[in-house]
Every structure is written in C-alpha cells, then in structure tokens.
Design a binder for these strands. Structure first.
Lengths: 329, 329
DNA sequence: GTGAAAGCGCTAACAA
DNA sequence: TTGTTAGCGCTTTCAC
C-alpha cells in the first residue's frame, strides 16, 4: 500500500480510504491510485486489514454437512450474496455433533468474523456462551420455534410434519408411517416426525408409526424403511418421509414390490429436490426453500454490518414451507 | 496472550511458542499456560497470527458450484482432513466462469492462505499469473491431462468417456448418444463427451451424437435430452450421460415411454451418486471418487505446509475411475 | 528453555 | 479532502 501511495503521490491512508470508501477521495486522486494499483498489481492484505479493523471480512458458516442438498443450496445462495459485498465464506461441518460444532465456533471466533451462521437452534452451552460473549452477529438458520442466540431465519419443523399428516388425512389415508433417517442426531427431522405424529393422532388415524434409519438419508435408506413400515403397519396406506431421497427410495421399493402409488400407498417427501418433479410418479413434497433462507440470512448479516443491527421481531424471519402436491399422493 | 502470560508468569513469546510447539516449552510452564488459558477463556487471534507469520491457517477452495454433488463430496472430505490439522476452509463458487474465478483468486490471495485449491486445469491467464507470482501451493483438482500450475489431483476425462463408449460397444450397441449438460462451460463434461465420441468412432459405430443441454445437469434435463436423442439418432440403442442425474432422468423418460432398459436402450451415467445403486433398473456408471480426490488434495497440501513441497511426478496424483456395471446396461 | 524487541500491513482517530 | 500518528495481537529472530 505504501508503494501504491508513493506512485500515486498520496499518503497510504488516502489509498486505504479510497479502497474502502472511494467517494471520500477526490476523483483525480482516485484515478492516480487506480493506475498505481494496476501497474503494481497490488493485492490488498485483508489479514492486516482485519487486524487493524478488529473485524475481518469473513462470515463463518457452520452446517451439519455440505453433502446435504438442503445446506448446499443455502450455502450457495449465501456465498453469492455475500461475495457481492466483498465478504468471504469460511465453511465448517459439524456432522450433527454439538461438541464438534463448539470446536468450529471456537476456531471461527479466532478469525474475528463479521458474522457467524449456525444451523438449527440446538447448541452446547459452551457454544452459546462463546457467541454471546463475542458480540458478533449470529444467525441461526433452518429452524424456528425456540429462542435464538441473536437472529434466526427458517421455519417450524413440527408444522411441516403437521402439513404432511393433514395432507395424507385429506386423501383419506388412515394407516400412516413417517420414515426418517439419522433422527437420533438430526433434531429437525425428529421434530418433523413428532409434528407429523401429533397431527395424525389429532386427526384420528388408526395407526401411525415413526421409523428411523440411523444412517444418512439416502435412497437406499428409503427402500429399507419402506419394507420395515410394511411389516410394522398393517393396512399401510400413507407415508411421509423426512427427505425426498428417502421418498424416492420408497417409490422404487413400491415399484419393485408391485405396490401401486398412490392407489395403495400415498407417498410424500420433504425438500423438493431436483428429481422430485420428474420421478415416477412425480413426488408430492414440502418445499422449504433453502435458497430463500440463504438470501434472508445474507440480508440480516449485511444489515448488521452496514446499517444498524436488526431489532425485535425483525431479527426472526419465517421463510415458511409450501406443500407441492404431485401424483404420488 | 499477554494476560495469559501474566497469569502463567511467563513472557508472551513463551505462550506463543507453547501454542505452536508445545514440546519446546518445559512441562511445568506448559501446565501453567494451559491453566491460564482455560481460566481466562483465551481464544487466540488468528488474524494477528496470520499477519505476523505472513501466512494464515486458511486454505482457499474454489469450485464451480457446491450444489454439485461431486464437489460437495470433495469439499466435505477436504475440510474434514484439513480441520484435523487446524486449517480452515475458505469457500468460493466460480459458477464455471473464468473471470469470476479470477476475482475469487484475487480475494483469496488477500488472505495469504496456506494453499489454494482450484477445480480443473482451465483458468484465465490472469489467474495463472497471480498464482505463480504468489508462491503459494496450488492444487488443481478433478482434472488431469494438461500442465498444472503447481500440483494436480484427478483423472482423465477423455478416458472416462472412452471407458463408457467401450462398455456400450462391448454390449453390442452401435447407435449411440452422449447426453451432457452445461458443456459450453463445463470443460470436463465436454472432454468426457469428446473422449466418448472418439472411442465410439474408433469402435466403428453406426451413429454417435453428442447432445448438450445448456442448463444445469438435472433429472429434468435428462428427460429432455433423451427425447432429443430419440429424434436425432435412428435405432438408438445406447446412451452415456455426463452425470448420473441426467441418466436418472433418461431412465424415467424411458419408463414413461415404455422403452425397455437395457433391452432396447442401454443407459449409463457418471458419478455413482447415492441413488444409482437403488434406482430401477440399477444404473451402470463410472465412479470418480470425489472423496478420494479430497483426501489426496489434503495430503498434498499438508505435505507442502509441513514437510517439504512434493517434487516431480509426486505432484500429480491420478485417482483414476472405476466402471460400475449394473442392470441398466 | 525463556524473554526482549522489532515488526507484519493495514485502519481509524484526529488534525490540518 | 488529505496526511500524521498510534496501534491491532501476534510471531520470530536473537540474546541470554
């Protein structure tokens, strides 16, 4: 920066100012600086900038797994929005483990990030304490219904489960099953399941089983779970899945066993993944809109950084969910 | 760090040394420091550390899109391996655009990262110059067959295409089509296509068309592409797809139109995604192992940082590809 | 094995 | 609108 300043015949602080607020510098000086930057090939050192400013142009995002299409969609949208404002994304995977999340939060804080984004509302006491003490803007995403540390963007998972149950009830289904995966760790999936069971019981079903596959939510898990459901629920005529991949596996398994969907069993998923509109039969599902979540998280973060921090009710954004009715139900 | 030093009754430099090389400090001093750290809840400032050390504990990863399951798998594996060594991942999306990639590289360099990971071997001249001038370890991944900037981990895409063509030929198929998406931007998919076409012609096929869908590689694109292939290739009896999602769409479309797979048309994909073993019929595909790529990239990076930088042939790692034969062919 | 001292490259008062 | 000045919190020689 000193070299740039020397070549442009201004002081380093003018260069610094120009880089951060170009309008605060006279146009002629700005042009000189621009020229000097490009002839020297100057690349600013954001590490030094972060140290001096006591806050770096980085946003730390912690998700359970980037291999999950939901979070990939959100991170992708978030990254695009933040990059437009010169913010970088520091990514971490908690693998659904609170202690791992706490370790990631600790490292994240060492970067003095402009904001921290976490997934869900369940965190260790240590994580909460670290974040509250830091004073850094925190956004919890993909879940609503508890008390957020700072801000939250998402939707109610029990309500998603209830929507699924009511849809199956409206189709005259009375022997239901909820097929979920990794629910011992994935609290949000577990909440969809309990919301489903509650609404199903309130609707007076004759049977409602919640089945869990301890491994990841995959197509194969869906096949396994459908078979277990057939064994455990007599007269099974409706299933809801915690993820479209599981629903797809269930559809395949029905096809293999000659079970007509939706005539014998109605199937619905969650996520509205890319294949859900095109599979056979097309899949009724609930769309949470990971992209919208990403955009809203970005909006809250940019608001916190630039203008004033959002206050009161505006610190919680409900992105809702949408039932997409297709042929599988 | 000064507070920790005061409480532990040592100098700040001893604390710093202990944090980086515990064995260089006497056990008694180490214990005192540990105690002081936990009573004070000290979190090191990596920004300051990065500035002083002129290199930060960050690895910048630039992929075309994290929503692509291939890259999600690699980034996931890579981040786990790096996190075990205290390295953070800075993520960027190029969206298959070289100028966007260059902008990301420029920002990445401002963080003085310990290493930079790029996708593929095609980059703008500016990107190459920036990286070469930086002296930072660079790993290009998911492609082999050109001259890497520094190190590379991946496989040959034309060879993948050739494997697909030979497989279909071995099944007696002679009217072939390659279904790809976004090939105007995704050079690797385009190379799989050209490798396929070349090997098909060398095998004496009667027809071989390469069809491109300009949008993303999705199930829906697969359905559209299959229909176009049916129109353009008379007697079509074998198709290879640049991605398992496209292949799944083709399978669905065949089912819709009553085309028997593999009897009338053999279908194969690329990627071995989670549904490929479970769909109907199960999908013959080629597995590139994104996870292995991630692990090998991590190995090269950790080698460059700790020990000496890999030299000569060991700077290029071929992770190969594996044909997974299933029922769709 | 430990400590003193000199920065790393920038930002942000504040003064001019 | 521009420049001067004093750090930001750590690492890294180099003595001791």
């Amino acid at each position: 920066m000193m070299d740039v300043a020397k070549l442009a015949r201004v002081s380093p602080s003018t260069v610094s100012l120009y880089l951060r607020r170009p309008s605060a510098v006279s146009p002629s000086a700005g042009q000189e600086i621009d020229r000097a930057i490009s002839t020297l090939g100057y690349v600013p050192n954001l590490v030094a900038g972060g140290l001096a400013a006591a806050s770096s142009k980085v946003v730390s995002i912690i998700v359970p797994s980037i291999r999950n299409a939901f979070f990939a969609e959100t991170v992708s949208a978030l990254q695009s929005e933040l990059a437009a404002d010169g913010l970088q994304v520091l990514l971490g995977h908690s693998e659904y483990a609170e202690d791992q999340e706490e370790a990631l939060v600790r490292t994240a804080l060492s970067w003095a990030p402009a904001a921290i984004v976490l997934t869900g509302l369940s965190h260790s006491a240590g994580t909460r304490k670290l974040l509250q003490a830091s004073g850094i803007p925190v956004v919890e995403m993909w879940e609503l219904g508890g008390k957020p540390i700072d801000m939250a963007v998402g939707f109610s998972h029990p309500q998603v489960g209830a929507t699924a149950a009511r849809h199956l009830l409206s189709k005259g289904r009375r022997s239901l099953a909820f097929l979920g995966a990794r629910m011992q760790e994935d609290h949000r999936a577990e909440k969809r399941a309990s919301g489903f069971a509650e609404a199903a019981r309130a609707g007076g079903v004759s049977a409602c089983e919640v089945l869990n596959h301890p491994g990841a939510a995959t197509v194969e898990a869906g096949s396994l779970l459908l078979n277990r459901a057939l064994q455990q629920v007599s007269g099974l005529d409706g299933i809801a899945c915690s993820n479209d991949l599981i629903a797809l596996g269930a559809l395949f398994e029905c096809q293999r066993q000659g079970i007509a969907v939706p005539d014998e069993i109605a199937v619905m998923g969650f996520g509205d993944l890319s294949f859900s509109a095109s599979c056979i039969p097309s899949l009724t599902t609930i769309r949470p809109s990971g992209e919208l979540i990403g955009k809203e998280v970005a909006r809250l973060i940019l608001g916190s950084i630039h203008g004033e921090r959002p206050e009161g009710a505006s610190r919680i954004v409900d992105t809702g969910h949408v039932l997409i009715e297709r042929k599988s139900s």
